[in-house]
């Protein structure tokens, strides 16, 4: 399979080309170019490592690590996403129209991840500045060790939400299972309502921000104390 030319048609059929062909072409794509990917068929690492302001529309379901480490690009996935969609994203936007498997947006530093459906366990694990908006609910241990950024959950959150959380902000509209260690409900101040309104608007959702509650760190486990031995 030869190299995919950059000035070739921007429609790539993954039944005709390999994911490596696609990714290498996307890595060289000029800013502003628009790409359409057909028949992803759950393959892994589709559109991973993009580093330019391009637009990629994927028609179907993707496997693990789709749009992994995205920088600047806008990636839209019409179906469901496997494990670690937009993991370690730095900037740009990833929009999953279906649901996402576990570890969506893991460790991501920036940009916006929108999941219209549900996200499974560990959504936003170790997030480092990304904003994530989930139209449905999230599974257990979401925002585990979340360091920075905001996670908006329009549905319910599973047990262990925000376990060992640092400075990330969590907004939940539905029910929350048992909170994780050192995660507590917090006052929703005007700056939080403003942030939440902005994120909902960017995700194309019209929920009333007043319906959400905010959760964050109690900051009781930031330093080691032997009295904390049974707190974790």
């Amino acid at each position: 399979m030869g190299t995919l030319s950059v000035d070739q048609s921007t429609r790539v059929d993954l039944r005709q080309r390999t994911v490596t062909d696609l990714n290498q072409a996307l890595h060289q794509a000029p800013a502003g170019s628009q790409w359409e990917v057909l028949h992803p068929d759950g393959q892994h690492a589709i559109a991973a490592g993009l580093a330019a302001p391009i637009t990629v529309k994927i028609e179907g379901h993707v496997g693990y690590f789709a749009a992994g480490m995205n920088e600047e690009a806008s990636v839209e996935i019409s179906g469901n996403a496997g494990v670690g969609v937009a993991e370690n994203m730095m900037s740009g936007r990833v929009h999953v129209h279906g649901s996402a498997s576990q570890s969506a947006g893991a460790t991501a530093h920036g940009g916006l991840l929108v999941i219209d459906g549900d996200a499974a366990a560990r959504c936003g694990i170790s997030m480092k500045g990304v904003n994530i908006v989930v139209g449905g609910g999230v599974g257990h241990m979401s925002a585990f060790m979340a360091q920075a950024g905001a996670l908006v959950i329009c549905g319910d959150a599973g047990d262990g939400l925000g376990d060992s959380i640092y400075e990330a902000r969590l907004y939940v509209r539905g029910k929350v299972g048992q909170l994780g260690a050192d995660c507590v409900a917090k006052e929703m101040r005007p700056e939080h309502l403003a942030e939440l309104s902005g994120l909902l608007a960017q995700a194309g959702l019209d929920h009333d921000p007043a319906e959400f509650r905010r959760y964050g760190s109690a900051r009781q486990l930031y330093n080691f104390h032997v009295e904390n031995a049974f707190a974790y």
Partner: peptide, 21 residues
Amino acid sequence: PDWTGPDDLRIKITELREITD
């Protein structure tokens, strides 16, 4: 945070290779 076990590691390594061509 985003993989568990050897089968996942194989996929993770492939992702790292894809990202670095």
